[in-house]
Design a protein around this nucleic acid. Structure first.
Lengths: 187, 187, 187, 187
DNA sequence: CATGAATGAGATTTCATTCAT
DNA sequence: CATGAATGAAATCTCATTCAT
């Protein structure tokens, strides 16, 4: 959530919108400039290259997502609650920030290796909560399998909603979270 | 699995390799030509445009995947078996044809709308098996949620293996398939 | 030698440094601004264009060089002495003001025609001394050939020293000056 | 001396002409393309970058110059003759290939450090001849000083002729060469 | 006087596509 | 069928200069 929209922030916002809509390579500096309402050259006062925008944006979205999950995690008083809150926060973030969420995934897909350069990664929170549940004997499968079920399912739900195949309903986050909990603790 | 490699097939193979490695937009006609060992102009004897390669390739990979799932489906004698066989085939296909699998996902990610143009889609088999399980009362959640768990989890497993986070083990396909079955039927 | 460094003078100093290091076209207004520690816009309070800096600087360096040679010339009591003092002053100037000397040459190289716009040119002093020596019958070759030997040799010595091929030694100016005198008067 | 003008050669020729006239940075790819009569993009089939043209051209001109000096050197039967032939060849090359000669100097001026990357440098021949003369006791000054006189004088003569200050006359090369020999052997 | 954002023209480079051979 | 040179449009980036504050 940028403060007063400085040009820098407007460039980031426009880039996020366009990148998540059309892809990174498919978005030109001209696209970004005209979305912001400035000239291409002006962008270079704020960023040294297109790549810097791409990376700044990932760090920014990733950090936001991390914070949201982190706060959810802190609110839970026991493992089950933390799991449910984190899963809900995950979905809610994806619904409220579809561009950021899509962009994060897109970046993972194309720049997989670079991802490790960043310090706070959302999946770290997910793994923390899963490890706790495993530690207490509630989840019995390998942490990586549990991670795949957790993240894979939620991302897919997002895609189905975004593509209009499922309609987003009231209380969906809670329902899916519990579904995930039951699925994982039954294994 | 191309037969005697005609130039056309070699172009498709090279394209698949490069597209899945670097992305579609990131791959140039020159890249493809030099991977095949011909010149750029020669490609246009076989395809009218880069886009035609992209679409031909999707149809080809998608159909292959569909056939694999379809055959697995046919072999099962009851719902549970069909489910397990389809899930195993899904994973096996992704491990044996990582480029094709990655390309299919990549195409979905960037050309979402175009996907519906194609007749045989892998997810139709998955939905068929899920609908049966729902029909028999074995799975009790919405088909779309079940689809999300099924496809999301398996895709994620593939990504974790490809990125080296999980090591691929003997019998992994069976294990994950049963995990999915238990997870979905427990809901 | 700038007095109390006004911004204007600091701009000229910075420009001289950068121009002589990297070349004129290769140096941007931003480079100059950041070397001075001001912003690009501020430069335009002092100069109307980059080209004005370029020309002001040439006039400034050229005049300085001219003065140095001129003073040397005045100190000599006979032709031989004047020749030696001018040659020494020439070399000394190049060693003490490598940036200015390099810049003068660079300007000659790229803006040859513009050079004639300026009133006081260093080579006028050199020609004066050579003409005297020719007048007295001490040098017997065409003045232009003598000029070529004089200026060519000294510039080359400078380049060899600056590039580290010759080490600058105590008394070098005197030695080279006498070498030149002997060479030219022997012809 | 390029054979049949292939596009590659025409690009090099055009570049040499423009670089030596206007400078490297001052010459655009568009300038080169339109001089050759092709589009900018076409240049990139023959060279990967402007810089590659710049470097290829230096290697080419430098090698040519080296060969010319080398051949002159081989023809001389004693030190004095070799000296005179090399000096004449030096001047003749500069008059016959003013663009190449100017370009070589220009490159030295701006890319001094890179010059050492190249194997055959014209000055190596000059140094060889000077060292011989020093070895035989004919020249008594340091080789670097002799080099400065030799190269500096000849380059200056070229500049004076090119700028129209001296007119080029029949037999000038011989005259200047002997002038140089007398000057250096008198020291 | 100075700032710093912005402009606009232009530079280098990329690339799908065409075409003569 | 294939080559490889060329096109032409567009992309990224640069930079002298202007201008509101």
């Amino acid at each position: 959530m940028p403060r007063r929209s400085s040009t820098r922030t407007r460039i980031l916002d426009a880039s996020l919108k366009l990148f998540s809509e059309k892809g990174i390579k498919e978005t030109t500096m001209r696209d970004i400039a005209s979305e912001v309402g400035i000239t291409e050259g002006a962008i270079y006062r704020h960023f040294t290259s297109k790549d810097q925008i791409v990376r700044t944006l990932f760090a920014y979205c990733s950090e936001q997502f991390y914070q949201v999950l982190s706060e959810a995690y802190e609110k839970g008083e026991n493992v089950r609650q933390r799991f449910l809150l984190v899963a809900q926060a995950f979905l809610r973030f994806s619904f409220n920030n579809p561009e950021a969420f899509r962009y994060i995934n897109l970046f993972h897909y194309f720049r997989g290796e670079e991802v490790t350069e960043y310090t706070h990664l959302p999946k770290d929170i997910v793994l923390k909560v899963l490890d706790e549940a495993i530690g207490e004997g509630l989840i019995k499968v390998r942490r990586e399998y549990a991670l795949a079920v957790f993240v894979g399912t939620l991302e897919r739900i997002f895609l189905l909603v975004v593509s209009g195949i499922i309609e987003k309903e009231e209380g969906m986050e809670e329902e899916i979270s519990q579904l995930l909990w039951r699925a994982l603790t039954s294994l």
